[in-house]
Simulated scan of single mutants.
Amino acid sequence: MEGYRFKSTLFDIEPGEDEQTNPRMYGRQLAAWLKVQLEGRGYVVEPVIDEDWGRCLVCLRAPFMLWVGCGSVADYDTAKPGDPPPAKEDVIWHCFPEAEVSLWKRLFRRIDTTVAVAKLDADLRAILAGESRITLMDV
């Protein structure tokens, strides 16, 4: 789960949005924005899925699942229970491409996801680098 870490003032934290994820895990607006950006590059992205770790954008289901995970980097080391969400300029955002091949498919044939993940990764990098209100961080 390497992906990209970045800061941006483009995304607000919506009240109560971490009720669909783990506490202090934000990124609803990031996921909606990324969905539009990926669709603009030809991906057919399913509706955003809330996960405990953030949001999932499924771009392909067959012959394997290709998706982007995104959300905030939790500030559990510095935040105390009851603290308000961080200011948007202080949030570190994260997104990463991923591919999954079902166990059933892996048993009967080798499915290479390398090319699709590399393309999705390159598209993610171009999307993020192309937005002036996003500052990529060195990891």
Score class of each variant (00 low, 15 high):
Glu2Thr: 15
Cys59Asn: 01
Phe96Ala: 14
Arg28Ile: 10
Val91Gln: 06
Ala32Asp: 12
Arg24Ala: 09
Glu2Trp: 15
Leu34Thr: 00
Pro84Tyr: 02
Ala74Leu: 04
Arg41Gly: 07
Ala129Cys: 11
Asn22Leu: 14
Asp83Tyr: 04
Tyr76Arg: 12
Glu2Lys: 14
Val115Asn: 13
Pro15Thr: 06
Glu19Asp: 14
Met25Glu: 15
Phe96Gln: 13
Phe96Thr: 14
Glu131Ser: 08
Glu46Trp: 09
Gly3Tyr: 01
Pro63Trp: 00
Gly54Val: 06
Arg28Ser: 09
Arg110Cys: 10
Thr114Gln: 11
Cys70Gly: 03
Asp77Pro: 03
Asp83Met: 04
Lys35Gly: 02
Ala129Asp: 13
Leu38Trp: 05
Glu98Phe: 10
Ile127Ser: 02
Gly69Ser: 11
Val101Ala: 00
Ser8His: 07
Ala79Ile: 12
Phe108Arg: 13
Pro86Val: 10
Tyr4Pro: 07
Ala74Cys: 12
Ser72Gln: 07
Gln37Gly: 05
Trp33Gln: 06
Phe96Ile: 10
Pro97Ser: 11
Val73Gly: 02
Arg61Ile: 00
Val91Arg: 04
Val117Arg: 09
Lys80Cys: 12
Thr78Pro: 10
Trp53Pro: 01
Pro47His: 01
Pro15Ser: 01
Lys88Glu: 03
Met137Phe: 08
Gly82Asn: 06
Glu14His: 12
Ile127Trp: 06
Phe96Glu: 15
Ala79Ser: 15
Asp50Leu: 05
Asn22Thr: 14
Arg55Trp: 12
Leu103Lys: 13
Thr135Phe: 07
Leu128Tyr: 01
Ala129Leu: 11
Ile111Trp: 04
Thr78Cys: 13
Ser8Asn: 01
Asp50Pro: 08
Tyr4His: 10
Pro23Thr: 05
Val139Lys: 15
Lys88Met: 01
Arg61Ala: 10
Met65Val: 13
Thr78Val: 15
Phe108Asp: 05
Lys7Pro: 11
His94Ala: 08
Ala126Ile: 08
Ala116Leu: 07
Asp90Gly: 12
Leu38Cys: 01
Val45Phe: 05
Gln29Asn: 03
Lys119Asn: 15
Arg28Pro: 04
Trp93Glu: 03
Glu39Arg: 07
Tyr43Gln: 05
Val58Ala: 06
Glu51Gln: 14
Leu103His: 14
Met137Cys: 08
Arg5Ser: 09
Glu100Val: 11
Leu10Met: 09
Gly54Phe: 00
Arg106Cys: 12
Pro15Gln: 05
Asp112Met: 07
Glu19Asn: 14
Ser8Trp: 02
Glu17Phe: 08
Phe64Tyr: 04
Trp33Asn: 07
Ala129Asn: 12
Met65Pro: 13
Glu51Asp: 13
Gln29Tyr: 09
Arg61Asn: 15
Glu51Ser: 11
